[in-house]
Design a protein around this nucleic acid. Structure first.
Length: 273
DNA sequence: CTGTTAACCTGAGTGC
DNA sequence: TGCACTCAGGTTAACA
């Protein structure tokens, strides 16, 4: 589920609940996630530590602790974070619970277990892990010339190119379709065939679509909710995603659904060339 | 190297 | 009520 906007909404929601608080104890489900630190590692690194900051890189949430360690969460497709009272009922798929020094508990729930939990001892270790990642969409480095250079020899469809975290981070299956609709570019176009002007439209559309989605609290397609359990609103503004066979909002022609690299892509073959 | 497929999981929805 | 099947916001190893 969560792409950049949803992860950013979660970050903004969780930050005021944890920064300045100390971790009293940790509890885990024992269920297998994509990555999960050992109980011992969790205890030794986190117990008694205070949260100093909550940051985001790509679709990862970074909890920076006062000992320099960083707890890194990835929400996968169905991951959620919530703040609960310690005596609130534990839900199915609550995989990590961190009891805070104010009696509240930060809980990470992930139904499909595609999410991950990682611990890094320092920012240096973290940087090694993040080294392969491309730039953030809102960074200066992310520009039309950058994309043109990166895509110069790629025959890969531009939609899949944009979803590659080594190219640019945070764009997933929903926003890739929305961004290309806004930029009026056919998602099947090989990256190498895009003109500088089209790359420029892509960069602008990325920023506009993602910024608007953050403003609207993200998109709730199946189960995304923020820290307070509220849905986002951006799903109401999705122009093509999930609208196969519906009329295009701009020209009225039917929106197409195709499959690219195993994922659904939605687009208007009249508006997007 | 490049690009696609399958696999990792659970659960909701559909059609019979 | 049940069964078989499809699909879902991500990532990544394996494959051609």
């Amino acid at each position: 589920m969560p792409e950049l906007p949803e992860v950013e909404v979660v970050r903004r929601g969780v930050r005021p609940h944890v920064v300045g608080r100390r971790i009293v104890s940790e509890a885990v489900s024992g269920q297998r996630l994509r990555c999960f630190p050992s109980r011992r590692m969790l205890r030794e690194t986190l117990r008694g530590r205070r949260f100093e900051a909550v940051e985001r890189r790509a679709k990862y949430l970074l909890f920076v602790m006062d000992n320099g360690a960083v707890l890194v969460l990835h929400l996968g497709m169905t991951g959620r974070l919530g703040i609960f009272r310690a005596d609130d009922t534990i839900a199915r798929h609550d995989h990590l619970r961190l009891l805070l020094d104010n009696g509240m508990e930060l809980r990470f729930n992930d139904q499909r277990r595609f999410g991950s939990v990682q611990l890094f001892a320092s920012a240096k270790e973290l940087n090694i892990f993040f080294a392969p990642l491309g730039p953030e969409p809102f960074s200066e480095q992310f520009s039309a010339p950058y994309l043109a250079a990166k895509g110069a020899k790629k025959n890969q469809p531009v939609k899949n190119f944009l979803m590659d975290g080594r190219v640019v981070t945070g764009i997933g299956n929903i926003y890739a379709s929305e961004i290309l609709f806004k930029a009026k570019i056919d998602p099947r176009t090989p990256a190498a065939r895009l003109s500088p002007a089209k790359w420029k439209r892509i960069v602008e559309s990325c920023r506009e679509v993602l910024a608007r989605a953050i403003e609207q609290g993200g998109s709730s397609i199946i189960n995304f909710v923020d820290l307070s359990g509220n849905s986002g609103y951006f799903q109401n503004e999705l122009l093509v995603y999930g609208r196969g066979d519906e009329p295009c909002a701009v020209c009225g022609k039917r929106v197409q659904r195709i499959v690219q690299a195993g994922r659904s892509t939605f687009f208007c073959n009249k508006c997007q060339r």
